Computed example of a mutant assay.
Amino acid sequence: MQRRNFIKTTAVAGAALALPPFVYPQSDIEYSIEELMGKADIELFGEGINLREEAYKSYQAMKKAAYSDGFNIKMISSYRDFYRQEGIWERKYLRFTEDDGMQPLDAIDKIIEYSTIPGTSRHHWGTDIDIIDGYPKVNGDVLVPEKFEAGGPFEAFKKWLDENSERFGFYLVYTDEPKRRGFKYEPWHYSYAPISIPMLTAFRKKNILKLLQNEDFIGCEHFTTGFLRSYIQDNILDINPKLL
């Protein structure tokens, strides 16, 4: 189970609205396979927030700035370890194959529209967040693109994020760029670039294909080498280029 430290929000007051542009130096931090795949015991900060310390502080600064402009950033999801992602994957796979009668490969294609293969989620890193504006009253699933678009309850919040999130180091991951492949557009998913960029760089240096072939969870027996290569190229790497 991951460790959590809780930092008081008052510690980030002050320069929240005047953060300088971020510079991303080459990181000399070593990240283990277990850490990159969500199997390590990492230190997380903030009750109900669960981010690495630096990402947590920047998130709190962004939340404070948004609040001043009339938005209440609400965390929907942040850190998820390998085993929680495995549970999400397996529940979806069984629902699609057993309840909906889909063929295994069709079920896998359906899952990876929005959900990652366990061990490859950016949420394993303690850098990525799914967020909404907590003020509007919303029915049903809040994490659907239409609710962030024109006429949707989060339209104004999305515009605020477009104009401000990068000042705090948070970048949209899965953009609406028409030529982008892989996961579908997720206007709610942001990544803290100063940490996630070096973590992705470290992950790319590993033999991801072999790592996934060594896993054992429901549905993975249908992964072919070709499928995994495409998944790595399209789903892991075809993201906002500012995060590469």
Rank of each mutant, 00 (worst) to 15 (best):
P187T: 12
P104E: 10
D238M: 01
Y24P: 00
I76M: 13
L36R: 14
D99S: 03
Y79S: 11
I208C: 15
F154D: 10
F223D: 09
A66H: 02
E43W: 05
S165A: 08
F148I: 10
P136T: 12
F227C: 02
L161C: 08
W125E: 06
V144T: 15
V144C: 14
K137V: 07
K57I: 00
L228N: 03
Y192F: 04
L161V: 01
K242I: 00
T201Y: 04
I49R: 06
K8N: 13
D234Q: 05
Q2C: 05
D238S: 05
Y79A: 10
T97Y: 00
E177H: 14
R3C: 03
S32P: 06
F183Q: 15
T120C: 08
I108F: 01
I111W: 02
R204A: 12
F227Y: 06
E34Q: 14
G152E: 08
K184P: 03
N72I: 04
I129H: 04
G48D: 03
D69Q: 13
I111H: 08
L211M: 15
Y59C: 08
Y114T: 07
Y67S: 10
Y67H: 09
W160I: 03
G48C: 02
G219N: 13
G119S: 08
S115T: 09
P136F: 05
E90Q: 06
D41T: 11
A40K: 14
R181E: 15
R91A: 04
E177W: 11
V144W: 08
T201Q: 13
I239G: 05
I73N: 12
T225N: 13
D69S: 07
L244W: 02
P21I: 08
I7T: 12
D100K: 09
T127E: 00
Q26G: 01
